[in-house]
């Protein structure tokens, strides 16, 4: 009889051990699955973040090309795809001092805006309109915008490109 009790006891312990082991393995599998799922989610969020940065870059390009502060205008009638050179030259100087400095930082953020004007065959002139980068570890999304650069004094349009470079921390 005592041998039967011992056998029953051992059988019970083995069954319990089996159930616990099964649960442990199950949770281990779940943990692996969650880790995997987590990695996929992180990947997906990274891509969403990239998409938002790209949308920001496009938004800024649209915004900049339509700013009345740089767009050509005649008696308030704005001309499309055209930038007034004298407005750009004024911007270059004025954007270094307040209140324009903080205003345009709020508007343009961490970005670099350069206007390249074609002044002859293989000759280009640069105007740095805005330059605010991060100190280190950043990526840049560049959107070039071809424009006609209007010189109101010489009454002439030169071909130009407005480079909108949006920086984001990595």
């Amino acid at each position: 009889m005592s041998f039967n009790i011992l056998k029953t006891k051992k059988h019970g312990q083995v069954k319990m051990f089996e159930s616990i082991a099964m649960l442990l393995v199950f949770f281990f599998l779940i943990a692996i699955g969650l880790k995997f799922y987590g990695n996929i989610q992180i990947n997906s969020l990274e891509r969403t973040k990239e998409r938002f940065i790209t949308m920001d870059s496009i938004k800024m390009a649209i915004l900049l090309s339509n700013l009345p502060e740089v767009k050509c205008s005649i008696q308030n009638v704005q001309k499309g795809a055209c930038i007034d050179l004298y407005k750009v030259m004024a911007w270059e100087q004025v954007s270094q001092i307040e209140p324009a400095k903080s205003y345009y930082f709020n508007l343009l953020g961490h970005s670099t805006i350069v206007l390249e004007e074609r002044i002859g065959a293989d000759r280009w002139k640069s105007y740095l309109m805005h330059n605010k980068t991060f100190k280190e570890n950043y990526s840049t999304s560049v959107t070039p915008l071809p424009v006609a650069v209007w010189n109101p004094n010489l009454r002439r349009h030169n071909f130009g490109v407005l480079y909108v470079k949006v920086h984001s921390e990595t």
């Binding site: 502060e69 004298y86 030259m89 100087q93 004025v94 345009y104 004094n153």
Partner: peptide, 13 residues
């Protein structure tokens, strides 16, 4: 801000 820009533009002109 814009009046500041136009001021500078007028100076250049």
């Amino acid at each position: 801000v814009v009046s500041q820009l136009y001021t500078k533009r007028s100076v250049l002109l």
